[in-house]
Amino acid sequence: MAMLSPKFDDLTIGHDFLFKKVMRNPRICKHLLEEVLQAPIAEISYPEIEKTIDVFYDSRGVRLDVIVADEKHTHYNLEMQVKNTTNPKTGQHVLPKRTRYYQAMLDVDALQKGQNFDLLPATYIIFICAFDFFGEGNYIYTFKKRCLETPELEFPDETTIILLNTTGTHGNISPDIKSFFEYVNQHAVTSDFTKEIDKEIFHIKSDQKARLEYMSLETYV
């Protein structure tokens, strides 16, 4: 039996629709990225939002939640993941290969026919997970390619995958990221940052156009 979608007024930041709407606020999105990366970003732009990428007519399309780019042309894909989904046929968790596919689709979409490979932008695939995929208790898991024979040797393809674990217990995160995790988990407003997010959600839920958009999307799901 299919699960009923939540009512519009009951949506939380953990729902794709509301997460995407909140991240359309450049100040919130930029601050979240800066706090995750612990590095300043001068400005961000939105090349696409909730973009569907289809490479071939018979290949699986990908609908990405949020794509933003900074002043250095680095691309960031932000995704909200509240469930640790498994393939019922294989019993395997889908998250690792999902990040792999998203990365591949970003690269294919970024490079035009005839362009050199060195023009591919640096990319960050960032999943905000309301679960600890690895069970290590880390707030953040950051992955880059490294040489097995020489671990300090990093493969310079400029791709990074970051899993944020909102249920983590240790690691180096900023107070604003910690408060953001509490907001995702418990809807607790404990900082100016989460207060701004909560205010943005209030405005979104007060927007009749957003309400109608959600109802229309749910009708055709």
Rank of each mutant, 00 (worst) to 15 (best):
M1D: 03
P6D: 01
P6S: 06
P6Y: 02
K7A: 08
K7I: 04
D9S: 05
D10F: 09
G14M: 11
G14K: 15
H15G: 02
H15K: 11
K21I: 01
P26H: 13
R27C: 06
I28A: 11
C29A: 12
L32P: 00
L32K: 01
L33F: 04
V36N: 00
L37T: 02
I41A: 03
A42S: 10
I44M: 06
Y46A: 11
E50Q: 13
E50R: 10
K51H: 09
T52S: 09
F56V: 14
F56S: 15
F56G: 11
R60P: 00
V62E: 05
I67L: 13
A69H: 07
E71P: 00
M80D: 02
Q81T: 00
V82E: 10
V82G: 00
N84K: 07
T85H: 12
T85N: 08
N87T: 00
P88T: 08
K89Q: 14
K89T: 14
K89W: 14
H93N: 05
L95A: 03
P96W: 05
K97G: 00
R100C: 12
A104L: 14
M105H: 06
M105N: 03
A110S: 11
A110F: 08
A110D: 07
L111F: 03
Q112G: 08
K113C: 09
Q115A: 15
L119D: 08
L120N: 02
T123V: 12
I125Q: 03
I126W: 03
F133M: 10
F133P: 01
G135E: 10
G135Y: 09
N138Q: 15
Y141F: 13
T142L: 08
T142S: 13
T142M: 14
F143Y: 07
P151A: 06
F155C: 10
T160A: 06
T160D: 10
I161E: 05
I162S: 01
L164N: 01
T166W: 11
G168P: 07
H170N: 12
G171Y: 05
N172M: 15
S174A: 10
I177M: 05
I177S: 00
S179I: 03
E182L: 15
E182P: 06
Y183C: 04
H187K: 14
A188T: 13
F193I: 00
T194I: 09
D198R: 03
I201V: 11
F202W: 14
K205E: 01
K205V: 07
S206M: 13
E213V: 03
Y214N: 02
M215G: 02
S216P: 03
L217H: 12
E218H: 05
T219M: 14
Y220I: 15
V221K: 10
V221D: 12
